[in-house]
């Protein structure tokens, strides 16, 4: 009896999580422009259409550009923050960690209003730079947490060993700390890239027509008219997410190995 309750509820709940995605994806390959079953065949036409339509490809390129900029900036900010915080005392650590994590809990609409106003007044304006800055502030906490985790897992004696062997602080950082926490930095970079690539709200407030991103195009498309290209873009974004998830898993496995 209790096993039955268990299996029914687990199956139902897990299906609710994944079925909506799995059921919708095939429609991207359906020749019909109605997004429903039964499928009338199998075609890549919609993919070809999306990939040749500048209305989709330009935002795609913009998204990649923004996300790459964000990855670099967020890894620098978040990484420096984590390295610095680890060297401070406990009390300072708590305060600074709260600061560096805070963008995760502030609703993105609020951040968007604040930044749109601030950028407008200081002359940063809308566009590529403002998007990179805004996304970096939201992505840096993820890098920070990721690097913090790998720094916490690092044996502090390794750094001391480096010192006792005559290595300066900087030499130690590049030969001991960085190689051993590299998976943390890499995972942070993955987080940062995907966060920026998927982000809509800040982009809606900050992008100008020239720097419109893929999520903005998708959002606009959804409000406008539901067509197969929208599902195609959704499929492309999902594939990217799954690829990044796999990359992250690989990084975490590599991270665990040297400490076995």
């Amino acid at each position: 009896m209790s096993r039955l309750i268990y299996w029914v509820s687990v199956t139902f709940c897990a299906s609710f999580l994944i079925l909506p995605l799995v059921v919708v994806w095939p429609l991207a390959f359906n020749p019909s422009s109605f997004l429903t079953y039964p499928m009338e065949g199998f075609t890549f036409d919609w993919f070809a259409k999306v990939l040749s339509d500048p209305g989709w490809t330009r935002p795609m390129l913009n998204s990649v550009r923004v996300a790459l900029g964000v990855t670099v900036l967020a890894v620098v900010i978040g990484g420096l923050a984590a390295l610095g915080v680890m060297m401070t005392r406990r009390g300072t650590q708590i305060v600074l960690s709260a600061l560096f994590v805070s963008p995760l809990v502030v609703p993105s609409v609020v951040v968007a209003v604040a930044l749109a106003y601030a950028f407008g007044r200081t002359g940063v304006g809308g566009g590529y730079l403002s998007l990179v800055l805004a996304h970096s502030i939201v992505a840096a906490p993820l890098v920070f947490l990721s690097v913090m985790t790998s720094l916490r897992g690092l044996d502090p004696n390794l750094d001391l060993a480096g010192a006792s062997l005559g290595a300066s602080r900087i030499y130690r950082f590049f030969t001991v700390t960085l190689p051993l926490t590299a998976p943390g930095f890499a995972a942070g970079a993955v987080f940062a890239f995907i966060t920026s690539f998927d982000e809509v709200v800040l982009a809606l407030f900050l992008a100008d027509p020239g720097s419109s991103t893929l999520p903005i195009a998708l959002f606009a498309g959804l409000r406008d008219r539901l067509e197969p290209p929208i599902v195609v873009v959704a499929v492309l974004l999902s594939v990217l997410s799954v690829l990044f998830l796999m990359l992250l898993n690989y990084l975490q496995k590599r991270h665990a190995a040297p400490r076995s």
Binding site: P20, L21, I194, F197, D198, V200, L222, L237, S241
Partner: peptide, 16 residues
Amino acid sequence: VSFWTSVLVRTTAWVV
């Protein structure tokens, strides 16, 4: 997989 799929994409699925 669900966690990593963007909010907008998951919303799209429900709209469809």
